[in-house]
Nucleic acid binder design. Structure first.
Lengths: 198, 198
DNA sequence: CCGCTACTATGACGGCTGTCATAGAGGGTG
DNA sequence: CACCCTCTATGACAGCCGTCATAGTAGCGG
């Protein structure tokens, strides 16, 4: 990974996100993060005076920004954008990873939400912000594709919900079946002008 | 809760599921489970010689059976069953809980899948079995409602995926918005005979 | 009463966790 | 050189974890 050029601080946030999405928050130790990032352990306290909570929160925020950027890149590379094609790109990212790298990891934002180590009020806010940051570019793209402004945000939420759920099921089953199913069943709906109440 | 009548063993499995869906697997200590279940600590080893892994797995299996039973009950209480009405009942269960009891807890199967404490090969299998046990009655119900046999299982997977994803988002946002959105957007599709490939 | 089985009580063990205190490089700047 | 600020090194701390060893109780069949 092209990561060595970045500073130790950024590497630790990145590594934290990687390990959290694999093992969960509680099972990810600060010593593991330091080792994975090849960062000096002595700097942990210096860069993250808020302790583990701060590091986890920044990892979640990073994941939110990453997901948003990915959406923008999908759209930029798309010759003829359509809702179903955007959804396909989002789902494909995960089927590709699972096929090539195995089912070890999931979404770090989900992990941080589910695996709150008791308190962690701020982590919930960070996760909510990450979902919002992800939702925003999707909704914007849908609007540009002609989806009514009122429904764009709702459809974006549906897309992300279905994707996240399918990711979890795929990990449990160690099979991309759920991801492909969701894509196949939801795609046509996204393109059609089906009204919400029939 | 009407739990005291059951034996200590069953209480511990139940309590484990409750705590796991709130705090995650790693953050749920065996001592917490024993206390929550008001069970004798000395019996832990006797009933679960496989240790924490066995207890977690049984809690996940229990959750799968519970979800399946819930679906059957929803259908039994439904005067005129339809796909969207079944989905509404499934979603409503969560909006009701979140409105009345807060956003502390999620789905234990998701927690066990995401928060695998490293190894836990068997827990993944238990989670996959739980999702399958949940999918089965939903697919069967859809078939009885006239959905083609080939699509029933796929639609069931879509329903569960969207629901699970929305649960996670709702917990993060501490708002039932995502659950209501998913219900509103997906309901009409489930009832309509929209073909997969337009 | 004996013996057997099912279940419970208690305490300790090593290991890992996040946090913290203390000290020390390194490099600019006055 | 002296100073300060940024960053790093190291080790120790209390606390919790899952696991295990040992002992003990209750109840039943013989």
């Amino acid at each position: 990974m092209t990561v060595s050029r970045r500073g130790p601080r950024e590497r630790m946030v990145f590594s934290a996100a990687q390990l959290i999405r694999r093992d969960g928050v509680a099972a990810t130790g600060l010593r593991d993060v330091v080792e994975h990032a090849q960062a000096p352990r002595g700097s942990l306290r210096h860069y993250f005076p808020g302790g583990k909570e701060q590091l986890v929160n920044e990892a979640v925020e990073w994941a939110g920004r990453y997901a948003a950027k990915r959406v923008d890149r999908f759209l930029a590379e798309m010759p003829e954008p359509s809702p179903s094609r955007l959804f396909e790109a989002m789902v494909r990212q995960w089927t590709d990873e699972y096929r090539s790298a195995g089912f070890a990891a999931g979404c770090p934002v989900v992990a941080a939400t589910v695996d709150r180590a008791g308190s962690a009020e701020s982590t919930g806010q960070a996760a909510a912000a990450a979902f919002a940051a992800w939702n925003r570019p999707v909704a914007r793209a849908l609007t540009q594709m002609g989806v009514p402004a009122g429904r764009a945000a709702s459809l974006a939420t549906l897309m992300i919900s279905a994707l996240e759920g399918a990711i979890v099921i795929a990990r449990a089953e160690r099979d991309v079946r759920a991801l492909e199913t969701v894509l196949r069943e939801l795609g046509p709906l996204l393109d059609s002008g089906v009204a919400p109440r029939d």
